[in-house]
Design a protein around this nucleic acid. Structure first.
Length: 282
DNA sequence: GGGTACCTGAAA
DNA sequence: TTTCAGGTACCC
């Protein structure tokens, strides 16, 4: 479910709600998430942000004693700062419930209990992940953030160069651009007038520039509308996004293209549906 | 590169 | 009953 705009929406909402709050404990309810040995008790949330499609809760606290050190034990600076990375995958939600209100119970997989409320990790399909990182480097993905100033149209053109992979599955690669998923890949290519089966490396300079613009315009617009809710996505307060009303092609097979009136087609690429207008995407 | 598995549920 | 789903890890 959640691509960059949905995750960004959740991060922006959570940051002011939970920053500064102290952790009571982390409860893992689904053993599929694995064991987390590190105690988070007493750590304070400094901020919530997004890296690619991951939500990152930054925690800091006073130096603590590590339990794994020998009999004496000693204060460890390394424990001073931790990052809790949550990947929502297909159906994950991170929901904020202030103290005094009832947190969700259905499909609840983990809870981060804080002073004044709790963050509930709800995930119907149980594909989501939750990990603790001890360094910021562990979070840095190889791909480029598509909304960062670093991504110029020139940088994008260089990334595309030489690739024979069709552009639609290319856009889903998280080792190139971060955060684009199946909905926005189709929407971006429609806006850029580019056919999803074009080899990535075959795009000329003008097309690469159009693609670059479309990436930024579509993602920014989707963030403004708090993401796309087809069936599952909810923001930190449990509300749906609204960008689904503005989708140009995704999920609209057989309906008329909003730009030229031609029929929207659906084709499977690398096992995933692509939607496009064969008349105005070349 | 693409196919498949992972997991659960809704819809066709 | 079968197909499909916003993601990605692992297999050739």
């Amino acid at each position: 479910m959640p691509e960059l705009p949905e995750v960004e929406t959740v991060a922006r909402q959570l940051a002011p709600l939970v920053s500064g709050r102290v952790v009571e404990r982390l409860e893992i309810l689904d053993r599929r998430l694995g064991r987390i040995r590190t105690s988070l008790r007493g750590l304070r949330i400094s901020t919530v942000s997004r890296v690619g499609k991951q939500l990152v809760v930054e925690l800091c606290g006073p130096p603590r004693r590590t339990r794994s050190t020998g009999a004496k034990g000693h204060a460890s600076d390394a424990a001073d700062r931790l990052w809790l990375a949550v990947h929502l995958r297909m159906t994950g939600r991170l929901l904020w419930t202030p103290a005094g209100r009832a947190p969700p119970r259905e499909h609840l997989r983990a809870r981060l209990i804080l002073a004044g409320g709790e963050l509930s990790f709800v995930d119907l399909r149980r594909l989501g992940t939750l990990r603790i990182h001890r360094s910021r480097d562990a979070l840095q993905a190889v791909g480029v953030e598509p909304l960062a100033a670093q991504l110029t149209s020139r940088v994008l053109a260089d990334l595309l160069a030489g690739s024979a992979q069709p552009i639609k599955p290319w856009l889903l690669r998280q080792d190139r651009l971060l955060g684009i998923g199946n909905i926005y890949a189709s929407e971006i290519l429609h806006r850029a007038h580019i056919h999803p089966e074009r080899p990535a490396g075959s795009l000329g300079a003008t097309e690469a520039r159009r693609l670059w613009l479309a990436v930024r315009q579509v993602l920014r617009a989707a963030i403004r509308h708090c993401g796309t809710t087809i069936s599952d996505f909810q923001d930190a307060r449990g509300r749906a996004g609204s960008f689904q009303r503005r989708l140009a092609v995704y999920g609209r097979e057989g309906e008329p293209c909003r730009r030229c009136g031609g029929p929207v087609e659906r084709r499977v690429q690398a096992g995933r549906s692509s939607y496009f207008c064969g008349r105005c995407q070349r």
